[in-house]
Simulated scan of single mutants.
Amino acid sequence: MDIEVILNKKLDKLGAEGDLVKVKAGFARNYLIPNGLATIATTTTKAQVERLKKMRAEREEKEKEQALELASKIGSLRLTFNLLGEKETNKVFGAVTTQDICERLLQAGIEVDRKKISLDRPLKESGLHVVPIHIHHDVLAQLQVEIIFPKKEKEAEKESSQEKAKKGDKKKKDKKEKKEKQLKKTKAKKAEDSST
């Protein structure tokens, strides 16, 4: 036998607070009512429904405002991950998962449940990716995640040695030009001295 109850709190698969729902009499008597999750729907308790619905609407509006604020913070972020990989194939070794994104967001002072981050599969390609995050049932944030290849030590050493070589070549060239100028001056001076 079913009875009507008014939910005092939001319950998954049943409804939100203030909803008038039909449930099995045993479920209502043994679980919902003793735990304060619902009350039996009578003429007096139905008056409470309006009050509960108003409270729910206010709470949901506040939650939505907070979600929009959080979405704008997330939208302004750009998380960068350095992964090893091959530039030729654009493939990386390892991957960026929802857990990695969640930890980086936490470092930025934003706490998000990793289940709300929508990734079909971990990110394994370099470049810029847009990751949707479901903050609220009406609010979706777009997070920018960039995967780059760090310069390997050998590449960095090679570049720095090339720069040093260029600087050394320039110094040698400057010294050579300076010596040539001095030689010209001394030859000119000798020529002057010999003519007088």
Rank of each mutant, 00 (worst) to 15 (best):
K91I: 08
K179I: 12
T44G: 03
G15R: 01
A38F: 03
K189G: 04
L183P: 00
L84K: 15
L84G: 11
L77T: 06
S126Q: 12
K178T: 09
D120N: 09
E61F: 12
E50D: 13
V92Y: 03
I117D: 11
S161F: 09
K154M: 05
L128F: 08
K189M: 12
I74C: 03
G75I: 04
L84D: 14
S194I: 13
E4L: 07
P132K: 10
V131D: 00
D113F: 04
Q182K: 14
K54I: 11
D2M: 10
K170N: 09
E153M: 00
G127N: 07
K166Y: 04
K10S: 15
K115D: 07
A141C: 08
E63V: 06
K185F: 12
L143T: 02
D2G: 05
E125N: 15
L37G: 02
K164C: 03
H129E: 08
R104W: 01
A25M: 05
K175E: 13
K179G: 06
R104N: 14
T80F: 02
T98N: 14
F27C: 08
R121K: 15
K172R: 15
E146S: 06
E63W: 06
S195M: 07
K62F: 11
I101T: 03
A165L: 14
M55N: 08
D174G: 02
T44F: 05
Q99F: 03
S195I: 03
L20G: 00
Q162I: 08
R78P: 02
K158N: 11
I147C: 00
S195H: 03
E65I: 10
L32R: 01
L68I: 09
P132S: 10
Q162R: 12
D169A: 15
K189D: 13
L20M: 01
F149G: 05
L14I: 04
K62W: 11
S160G: 02
K189L: 14
P132H: 07
V49A: 11
L84Q: 15
L123G: 04
Q182L: 15
S194G: 01
I147G: 00
M55K: 13
E146I: 01
Q162M: 10
A71Q: 00
D120G: 12
L105M: 06
E155C: 02
K173M: 09
E159V: 06
S76I: 01
M1S: 04
S195D: 03
L128W: 05
A188P: 00
R78V: 10
E163Q: 15
L140R: 15
H134R: 13
K158W: 10
A191F: 09
A47C: 01
K164Q: 11
Y31D: 02
Q182I: 12
K172P: 02
E86Y: 06
K189P: 02
A67M: 08
K158S: 13
A16M: 10
K9E: 14
K181S: 08
H134L: 09
L143I: 03
Q48F: 09
R78S: 14
L70T: 11
T43Y: 01
Q144L: 14
K10M: 07
P132T: 11
K22V: 02
R51E: 13
